[in-house]
Design a binder for these strands. Sequence first.
DNA 1: TTGTATGCGTTATCAC
DNA 2: GTGATAACGCATACAA
Lengths: 355, 355
Amino acid sequence: MTGKVTITDIARLAGVSKATVSRVLNRKPDVDPETRARVQQIIDEQGFVPNLVATVQAGGRSRFVGMLVQSLTWPLIHEVMQGVAEIIENSDYELILYNITHTSDRATTIDRVFAKNLTSGILAVFPGQSVQYLETLADQGHPIVVIDDQGKPTRAPWVGADNRSGSRDAVRHLLNLGHRRIAHIQGPAKYACSWERYQGYCDALAEANISLDPRLIRVGDFEAPSGYTCAQALLGLSDPPTAVYAGSDLMAYGFIQYAEDHGVRIPHDVALIGFDDILASAHTRPALTTVRQPFYEMGRRGIELLLSLIENPVSPAARQLARRSDPTRIVPRIEFETRLVIRESCGAERHTPAI
Amino acid sequence: MTGKVTITDIARLAGVSKATVSRVLNRKPDVDPETRARVQQIIDEQGFVPNLVATVQAGGRSRFVGMLVQSLTWPLIHEVMQGVAEIIENSDYELILYNITHTSDRATTIDRVFAKNLTSGILAVFPGQSVQYLETLADQGHPIVVIDDQGKPTRAPWVGADNRSGSRDAVRHLLNLGHRRIAHIQGPAKYACSWERYQGYCDALAEANISLDPRLIRVGDFEAPSGYTCAQALLGLSDPPTAVYAGSDLMAYGFIQYAEDHGVRIPHDVALIGFDDILASAHTRPALTTVRQPFYEMGRRGIELLLSLIENPVSPAARQLARRSDPTRIVPRIEFETRLVIRESCGAERHTPAI
DNA sequence: TTGTATGCGTTATCAC
DNA sequence: GTGATAACGCATACAA
C-alpha cells in the first residue's frame, strides 16, 4: 500500500487539480489558505508521501548527497563518516554511498551518481584516480568536495590535512628527546602524502644538521605487515636506529608486533611514532605516539562545505569570470593542521587513561 | 555534459527507435546482433549513461538497497556496516543510508525510502520503534531484513544474536573462577536485550544455587558514565561483589574508569566481564573479557538475506498460503551464537597480543 | 488563485 | 526483429 496513493488521488479527493496539490506540497505562496488547508487535510488523512523518483524526474530537488568512497572497509572511513553523519543527521539530506572499486569504469559510476538530479552533490573521500574526472565535473559547476590526504586537486573544492608540517613535528619531537639516528618507514610512492610526510622528515633532520642515511629509509605500503618487514630490516642493521617514524599507524602496529615478537622494548630500546591516530592507536601497547589527522573534523567540514555549495550554487558566469582572475576565490580549500599526540611509544612519559 | 545525451539521441544517431536502444541497454535477447553492435558502438562513443531516475520511474530496476539506522554515530553500526559493505562491494547494488532520528514521522521516512522503486529493499539496523511499521511492510511483501539485538520481530526476516545464553556463559565463567558474589549492571528496561541478558545472569546463578541479591543488581543506560556510577554504588557496598558482569562494554569501560580512579585493581580486587566486544575492548587496560556479538557477521548475513529476498521475491499467493500454515517457513530468522572472549579483566590470564 | 497542458527519460505493450 | 506509443508521478509555464 506504500506508494499507492498518488497526487492524482489527492487532487480528486480534494476537488482540485494536481497542480494545486503540487503547490501545497512545495509550499508555494500563491494558494488560497482555505484550499491549502483542505488539501493538506486530505494529504494527512491519506498518509500521502510524494514519490521521490517522480519528483526528481520532474525537476524537483532530491535531498540526496552522494558519498563516494574507495572502499567502505577501510578503517579511516569511519572517522570521516562520523563527522559526515553528525552533520547529515541534522540536515534534511540523506546519504547515498557509492564505492568505486567494484566498477571497472569510474566515470560511469560517477555519471550514474549524477544521473539527472538523484544526488545534489558529491563528497568524494580519498577518491584516488577518480579525482581527475571529479575535477572536470566540478569545473562544470557540479557541487563536489574532495576529502583527500593524497593530493590537492587544483580545480575542485578540497578538504585535507597538512602532512608535511605534521611529519616535521613528529621528527622534531624525536630530536628533542635526544635521538639522532631516526628511521622513516615511507608509504607507497604513488601517494602524494607519502612524499609529503617524507619531506617533513627530511625537513626536521635538515634543521638539526643530520644527513640522511638511506639505510634508515624503508618503503612500506601503509599496512601493518609491511611495518613488520621494515622493522626486521631496520632492527637488523649493524647500527640500528634509536627511533622510528612510521608513515602510518598501521605500519607502526607492524613494527610493534615485530618488537614484541623479538623482545625489543618500546620505547626503551627504540622509540616509535606513527601517523594518522586511528582509533586503536590509543590502546596499543605501548600506546602509540602519533600525528593525528582530524578525520572527524574533515568529514564535518567537508559535508558542510558541500551542503553550502548545493544551497548557494555558483552561477556559470561567475565561475567563468573567477577562472580568469583568481581561481582560489571560487575553489574553497580547507587544510587542517595535524597535531602530535604524545603517548608512550616515543618515550616521553605521560599519564594515559585506560579508555 | 554529464547526463546531457539521452536515449533519444542514441536512437537518432544509430538510426533506430528508442525501444531498440532500450533493448540493447537491458540485454534483451530479441535484437539483431548487427543492430546491437551498431547501437552499442554509438553508446560507447557518446559515453551514454542511462538516467537512473528515469529508468526507475519507468519501472526498471534500481540496484539500490536502503540501510536504515537509528544513528550513524553509534559505534556498533560500524562493525555491522563493515559486513554489509563487504557484500555490497561485491554486488552491483549501492547503499542508501537513512537515519530515522531526525524525522519526526518514522513512517514517512520509510515510505520515502520505498518511494516507487528507488530502493529494492531495506536492511534495518537496530530500528527501535520503527520495527512495527517495518513488519507491516514486510507483511505486504516488501523485501525487508531487520538486524536487532533488542527484540525479535515476528513477521519480518530477522538477524540477531542469542543474548540470554551468551549472558549465561559469562556468569558461568565467573562462577567457575570461584566467584559467588557476582553483580550485574543491567541495560535500560525498555530494551528486550537488557532483560534477556539479565535472564541469562539469573539462569547461571540459579544453576549454582545462588540466590539473587538485589543490591548487586544495578541499572545503567548502556553508556560508560552509567557504568561509572554503578561502580561507585557496587564498590561502596559493605560487602562488595568480587565480580561484576556488565550488560554492555561501554558500561564496563565506566567501571574500569572508576576502578582506576579509586585504586581498585581489576581483576585482582574485582573481576569484570562486559557484553558486545566492541573494537576498543581488546585494548582497554586491563583488556576486557566480554561476550562477543558477531556484528560483522550479522551485517554480512543480513544483507545477503536481503539481496536473496530481492532476487527471489515471494509471491503474494505463496505468502498468503504460508501465513495460514507455518509462518516461520516464510520468515527467515538467523540467530547467531555469542561467544565469550576471555581476556584479562575476568582474572583468567591469557596472552594477549598488542594489536 | 487555480486549472490545463507539456515535459522529464526510460521501460513496456502492443502492433507491424 | 523493430517501431510507435502509452505509461510512470510529479513540477511548471502558461492560460484563464
